[in-house]
């Protein structure tokens, strides 16, 4: 039982990252019907921005210019890098996606892929071969609860992720901008005719998704502090699977699917021999899709639109 509970806790943490990253994919996919394959690398950029912000703030406090407790530095780091990364996301949209608004969707997917490669390579050129260590802003504390090890980091990660998801849902459901996004997801062709500025909404969507990826990357940095230029690739592609699994345009769906993917991965490694993890985990995904071909929360849409 403790074994199960321990893995449950592990999966909760791991799933949070998939969920947060999947939200970015899902929003872009829902609103603009695009695969934003640069998203994993935006996650990576967010992590490095966070690294520099955090190191800068820690340095300033050390010199005594400002005196901040570490928890406040963490909060500030998350907020500042969310904002900065949002701009990076909008820039990617402006450069790589807006010129291709009327092109086949797959072309935009290729630009995204290539922007990702450029981001990785630029990072390698500018920062060199060294791996960076994300500053430790939260002193690890380990609590033993009936044989289950829980750290303060795990609790914070899950809590902050859920909070962000709740805020995002609130934004999309309750605000005017959110309504515009939903309308766009409902009908891409007609809604701009109603006076909704397409470019603004597109930028907003990319910005929000990137900000979430940045938040995810900082949380990620506290739990997995080794950074490298290719850190976003695998987790990005897997989160993409989660986003589509959730169903088109469903925020709740993407979040739930992210957690589900985390659980499937952790439990297939812990129940079966871990060598077979990917084999089993992705076979399960395949199996789910056979029975829910439109994703977990998606509505049926037969249109292929613009491809």
């Amino acid at each position: 039982m403790t074994y199960f509970l321990q893995n449950f806790v592990n999966a909760l943490q791991w799933g949070s990252f998939y969920a947060l990253i999947a939200l970015g994919y899902s929003m872009v996919y829902g609103v603009l019907l695009l695969f934003n394959f640069a998203h994993g690398d935006i996650f990576m950029v967010g992590s490095y921005i966070g690294f520099f912000v955090a190191t800068g703030l820690v340095g300033l406090s050390a010199v005594g210019v400002i005196t901040l407790p570490y928890w406040l530095i963490l909060v500030l780091t998350i907020l500042i890098s969310m904002i900065l990364t949002a701009f990076v996301g909008m820039l990617v949209e402006r450069v790589g996606y807006r010129p291709l608004r009327d092109a086949p969707r797959a072309s935009a997917a290729i630009t995204g892929l290539m922007i990702g490669v450029i981001l990785e390579t630029l990072n390698l050129i500018m920062l060199g071969a060294e791996r960076y260590k994300f500053p430790e802003l939260l002193q690890t504390e380990i609590y033993e609860l009936g044989g289950v090890s829980v750290t303060n980091k795990k609790i914070m990660i899950v809590f902050v992720s859920l909070l962000l998801m709740y805020l995002l849902n609130l934004f999309v459901m309750k605000t005017k901008w959110g309504m515009a996004m939903r309308a766009m997801a409902y009908d891409f062709a007609v809604v701009p005719l109603m006076g909704i500025p397409l470019n603004t909404i597109a930028a907003l969507t990319f910005g929000l998704g990137s900000a979430l990826a940045a938040a995810a990357s900082i949380l990620f940095g506290t739990a997995y502090p080794v950074m490298d230029p290719y850190m976003g690739v695998t987790i990005g592609w897997k989160a993409f699977v989660a986003a589509i699994l959730g169903g088109r345009g469903s925020i709740v769906g993407a979040a739930v699917a992210g957690f589900i993917l985390g659980f499937i991965e952790i439990f297939s490694a812990s129940v079966f021999p871990s060598t077979y993890r990917d084999l089993i985990a992705y076979s399960i995904i395949l199996f789910i899709l056979v029975f829910r071909p439109h994703g977990l929360f998606g509505q049926e849409h037969t249109s292929k639109l613009r491809l």
Binding site: F35, I244, Y282, E300
Partner: peptide
């Protein structure tokens, strides 16, 4: 078999999952 049951972008992720599965 699973992806052509419906129209849409599901081939994208089913095929992606397939790539992971074959590698593993």
């Amino acid at each position: 078999i699973p992806s052509f049951r419906t129209r849409g972008d599901y081939l994208a992720i089913i095929s992606l999952a397939f790539t992971f599965i074959i590698k593993s």
